[in-house]
């Protein structure tokens, strides 16, 4: 399966770079029909030269935001990985760090969050700059070219962080990569409107890392022992139904876990028995 991932070449196409997206290239939004974006000089100047990670990465942790992480004690184990990926600007305050860790190398941010929580960065930007400080020196991965409405806010995130000289760097998701991954999983039987960020990240991680352990991916309202858990480890806000096909995605990940392509952590972590399977 790892070989199958090469269909999408995450190493090269994961993010928008000067190499894979020259000026004047037409990009089709992967989340919409009929719209495209032409890369102009101004946007081009925001891209990094090449994919900014040292490939291949060794041990990666992909951290979902599932409520199963709550009281899991996995923080330490997550932090032990070389590369930690997180989804959708999750909170990393001290009350959670025991369960989810504090290290971050890559965090995704949805334009919709920027819109909801930070008024699209049109007014005060300080709250946003302060809120991403917890991610230290990491990359903020934004699907800028998935939806038409997401482009402006995503670019604005870049401007904002560059303006204040923040330590975070914004990189933009490559819509072609996202589309290829989407097609790939569709052929495997996932029928949501759109893949979740988590699955994108796992797919990317599988293409870029030697060992992948995933945490917090558990889309059900009960844990393995039948205890009710919240939707996220930090809140219990349910998403709009019908957008993502979480259980189907989980099933696929479960297959991968079974076949040993990645390791899925569902139980509480105990430091002594940390034997990652690859």
């Amino acid at each position: 399966r790892k070989l199958l991932k090469e269909c999408c070449d995450p190493g090269q196409l994961f993010a928008m770079t000067k190499e894979n997206s020259p000026v004047g290239k037409n990009l089709w939004y992967d989340g919409e029909f009929l719209y495209s974006f032409t890369i102009d000089n101004e946007t081009f100047s925001l891209f990094p030269k090449a994919t900014p990670f040292q490939l291949p990465l060794k041990k990666c942790s992909v951290v979902g935001n599932g409520g199963i992480l709550k009281k899991s004690n996995c923080g330490r184990q997550i932090d032990q990985a070389d590369f930690v990926m997180r989804c959708n600007l999750p909170p990393l305050t001290s009350e959670y760090s025991k369960d989810v860790g504090s290290k971050t190398q890559l965090v995704t941010a949805n334009p919709s969050i920027i819109k909801k929580r930070f008024q699209n960065l049109l007014w005060s930007r300080k709250a946003f700059v302060d809120s991403v400080k917890v991610y230290n020196q990491s990359y903020i991965y934004m699907p800028a070219f998935s939806m038409k409405a997401g482009t402006e806010p995503s670019l604005r995130v870049y401007y904002t962080l560059a303006d204040v000289g923040a330590r975070q760097t914004v990189i933009f998701a490559n819509p072609n990569f996202l589309r290829d991954i989407g097609k790939f999983w569709k052929s495997k039987g996932i029928h949501g409107k759109r893949l979740s960020t988590g699955l994108f990240l796992v797919s990317a991680a599988l293409g870029m890392c030697e060992e992948v352990t995933i945490y917090g991916f558990w889309p059900f309202s009960m844990d393995l022992h039948g205890n009710f858990i919240s939707h996220h480890y930090y809140d219990n806000v349910l998403p709009d139904s019908g957008f993502h096909a979480m259980p189907e995605e989980f099933l696929q990940l479960w297959f991968l876990h079974k076949s040993g392509v990645l390791r899925m952590q569902l139980e509480h972590c105990e430091d002594s028995i940390f034997h990652p399977a690859s």
Partner: peptide, 9 residues
Amino acid sequence: LEKWRKPFF
């Protein structure tokens, strides 16, 4: 001021 703000500042 919707894009860069530093130049203005």
